[in-house]
Amino acid sequence: MSDTSAQILLRTTVNGLDVAVAIEPQETLAEVLREKLQLIGTKVSCNVQVCGACTVLVDGLPVSSCTYLAYEARDRQVLTIEGLASKDGTLHPLQTAFIEENAFQCGFCTPGMILAAKSLLDQRPDSSEHEIVEYMEGNICRCTGYRSIVAAIQKAQASVADRSS
């Protein structure tokens, strides 16, 4: 707007689409996703990299987009919740499992929670319950008491295993 900071051009890939967007150097990835690309599925809560609500995947790994500079995503692959389901609208097994297991209530943590879980299952598809709980420690949910989320991740794990077998 009226801010006079120097703009830089960010080229990155978001949900499989190449984008080029003018940003200010200090802008966070969450700001660019939400305000410039209207990808409002990414939620911001604690703003200090504690709660995990703003989690998106950059080259497959989870980052807290509230504190991750958008410029760091240049020439990388960014995945947000909007890019998780198939193009035909078929939900990802994690999305289906989260619905089936009631793994959310208010839903504000859900996009970040699902993306963190995706990163885990992509890296270690056979994670034990203990590994799931440890890996997910960086994502807070204030509604559910977590057990339904663990159940959903395990269900998705089984469903992914079924598909690939």
Binding site: L39, G41, K43, L91, Q95, G107, F108, T110
Partner: peptide, 21 residues
């Protein structure tokens, strides 16, 4: 009956609208 939540798909796809949005 434990029917699935009506807001389920909106919330797992990031399409649920909150005031912040």
């Amino acid at each position: 009956k434990s029917v699935p939540r009506r807001d389920g798909v909106a919330k797992v796809t990031g399409r649920a609208l909150y005031t912040s949005d």
